[in-house]
Computed example of a mutant assay.
Amino acid sequence: MTASDSTSSSSQRAGSIVTRTVERDEADVRLDRWFKRHYPDVTHGHLQRLLRTGQVRVDGKRAEANSRLSPGQQIRIPPLGHAAPVEEMLRPAPKKPAISDKDAAALQAMVLFRDDDVIAINKPAGLAVQGGTGTTKHLDAMLDVLRFDGKERPKLVHRLDKDTSGVLLLARTTFAASRLTEMFRGKDVKKIYWAVTVGVPKPYQGKIDLALAKEGGPGGERVAGDDDDGKRALTYFSVLENAGKQAAFVAMWPRTGRTHQLRVHMAAIGTPILGDGKYAGQGAIIPGAEVPKKLHLHARRLILPHPRGNKTIDVTAPLPDHMLQTWKYMDFSANLREDPFVDVE
């Protein structure tokens, strides 16, 4: 924290108006998200009231919550009561779980692509992206080891299930995080997954348009098809190879990003993903096949515009060991590069 930030914090606690400058890496961030980062205990409702009454201003003018910021702009911040700046909330720093040298080296070895704004890693199956009930080891707690020469801690901009491997993108700057988050919410990102299905989907190419809704239960988070109360979910699929009628090597392109979408959709058409006991039980096993009993779902390729808009990011992740074993057993091709959905709008 700089001396000016320290002075601003003290003045604000005393009930004075302070002014903060938008930093270079905060370019194009929405005003409400800027507030969330700097003053996380200011609620959305409180901020809306401050904006409506003109107490928060940008360069002396009234602003909306969705106003985009530019470097050098001055944000007027009124007294916020008990709301403390994020710098103060982080001091003293909370204890973080220790990261072993072995884990740090392994995580750094997962990097597939890196530049000043973006890191792409090949997340292994079994590593949770974020913590939760009973989850003590997860990627979010280890992101500091991927800082490298960056000034900021890398940020998550999308998710993969714990048991799904493959390309996971991280933002290295606040600017990139804002742009990438919007891309993943829209249709700018093409995500191609590889999987093995029990049985062969028919037709070999098609789409699954089945709304999905979350449902509770003792087995943890589950999702089910629900045309009445669910949110629309759309998946394109293409059978690339098959092992008789027993199994198929399938590529999938989820046009929406619902929880467990690919797993539920493939089970819904009668060809569940190999190893997906959560949604297919014993139906996720190929009788007599000598293949690993793990989920066979891999985020193979990610294609999207660079957050700076000057090039395209196109990253491919090699298959994990358990899927390579199955590819060899089924005599599938593990190095296919073509996009099977190139002609799909």
Results as ranks from 00 to 15, higher is better:
3 A>Y: 12
4 S>R: 15
5 D>T: 12
5 D>W: 10
5 D>S: 14
5 D>N: 15
7 T>V: 14
9 S>C: 12
11 S>L: 12
16 S>Q: 09
17 I>G: 06
21 T>I: 15
21 T>D: 12
22 V>M: 06
29 V>L: 08
29 V>M: 08
32 D>N: 13
32 D>V: 06
37 R>K: 14
39 Y>G: 08
40 P>E: 02
42 V>S: 01
52 R>N: 14
55 Q>I: 04
58 V>P: 05
66 N>S: 13
69 L>M: 01
71 P>K: 02
73 Q>R: 05
74 Q>H: 11
74 Q>T: 06
75 I>R: 06
78 P>W: 05
79 P>D: 07
79 P>L: 01
80 L>F: 00
83 A>F: 01
85 P>A: 13
86 V>T: 09
87 E>C: 09
88 E>Q: 15
89 M>D: 12
92 P>G: 10
92 P>Q: 13
93 A>H: 09
98 A>C: 06
99 I>N: 07
99 I>G: 02
108 Q>R: 04
109 A>N: 09
109 A>G: 06
114 R>N: 09
114 R>D: 11
124 P>V: 00
126 G>M: 12
129 V>L: 02
135 T>Q: 14
135 T>C: 10
137 K>R: 15
138 H>P: 11
138 H>V: 07
141 A>G: 15
144 D>R: 10
145 V>Y: 08
147 R>N: 09
147 R>A: 10
147 R>H: 10
153 R>Q: 10
154 P>L: 06
157 V>P: 07
158 H>A: 06
166 G>P: 04
175 F>A: 11
176 A>N: 11
179 R>I: 13
180 L>R: 06
182 E>F: 03
182 E>P: 00
183 M>F: 12
184 F>M: 09
187 K>E: 15
187 K>I: 06
192 I>K: 00
192 I>W: 00
195 A>Q: 05
196 V>W: 08
198 V>S: 01
198 V>Y: 03
199 G>Q: 02
200 V>G: 00
202 K>Q: 15
203 P>R: 14
205 Q>D: 13
208 I>M: 07
211 A>C: 11
213 A>E: 08
215 E>K: 00
226 D>G: 01
234 L>N: 05
236 Y>A: 07
237 F>W: 07
238 S>D: 05
243 A>R: 00
245 K>E: 11
247 A>Q: 08
248 A>I: 01
254 P>C: 13
254 P>E: 04
259 T>V: 07
259 T>G: 08
261 Q>L: 11
265 H>W: 09
268 A>G: 09
273 I>D: 14
278 K>G: 03
286 I>M: 07
289 A>R: 04
293 K>F: 09
294 K>V: 01
296 H>Q: 07
297 L>E: 11
298 H>E: 00
303 I>L: 15
307 P>I: 04
308 R>E: 14
309 G>D: 02
309 G>R: 02
309 G>W: 00
314 D>V: 02
314 D>S: 04
314 D>T: 02
317 A>I: 12
319 L>E: 10
325 Q>E: 13
328 K>F: 02
331 D>T: 10
333 S>G: 05
334 A>S: 09
336 L>D: 05
336 L>C: 04
344 V>R: 14
344 V>L: 13
